[in-house]
Simulated scan of single mutants.
Amino acid sequence: MTIPRIGKRLIATAAAAASLGAVAVIGTASPAAASTISNGNVQVCAQGTYPVYAQFPYRGGWSTTIVNPGNCWLHYVGGNSWEPINVYGLYPNSSATFSLGTFWYDGAVSGIGIGGEGTPWQHDTYIW
């Protein structure tokens, strides 16, 4: 079976359009991956129904203040190598905590934003 000349043109046009669409999607994905927080800055937000705070184990366990729901903590903390940031949520009316995870940060190359979302029993994090 042979494909008529018009059919070959339609197939070539569709293939070219699909390739350009894929390039456009790939081309726009990279800039969105970059943090919106300036180098050396850390932002911790309580985007859920519980307070959150961050702790810096490579800095002697130093931690942020407790951030209440709907608020954020943003400060320049510097840094010149990769280090972990442990983020915790607090259960209501208690000093008991739960881990939201450990996130790696290098203040020399980026900033980081970390948001605790959901509830203490069904929590998640959002990173920017």
Rank of each mutant, 00 (worst) to 15 (best):
P69I: 08
L20C: 12
V67A: 09
Y126G: 01
Q122E: 08
T102P: 01
W73K: 07
I6L: 13
D106P: 00
S95T: 15
A33G: 12
T13Q: 12
A18H: 05
T2G: 15
C72K: 02
Y126E: 08
S95F: 12
I66T: 15
T65A: 14
T65Y: 09
N93P: 07
Y88Q: 02
T28P: 00
C45N: 08
L10E: 15
V23D: 06
A24R: 07
T49E: 04
P120I: 08
P92S: 04
T28I: 10
N39D: 10
S30Q: 03
S19W: 03
I66Q: 15
V109F: 05
V42W: 02
F103Y: 12
V44A: 03
Q43I: 07
G78P: 06
H123F: 08
Y58S: 13
G89Q: 06
N93F: 14
T125I: 01
G115F: 09
V109D: 05
G48H: 03
R5K: 12
P4L: 09
S94C: 07
K8T: 11
W121I: 11
E117G: 00
G115K: 05
F98G: 04
R5V: 13
Q122G: 12
G113T: 00
T64S: 12
S94R: 03
S38G: 02
S63M: 06
H75L: 10
A34D: 08
S30G: 00
D124H: 01
G61F: 08
Q43P: 00
H75K: 11
G89A: 12
G78V: 04
A16C: 13
V52D: 06
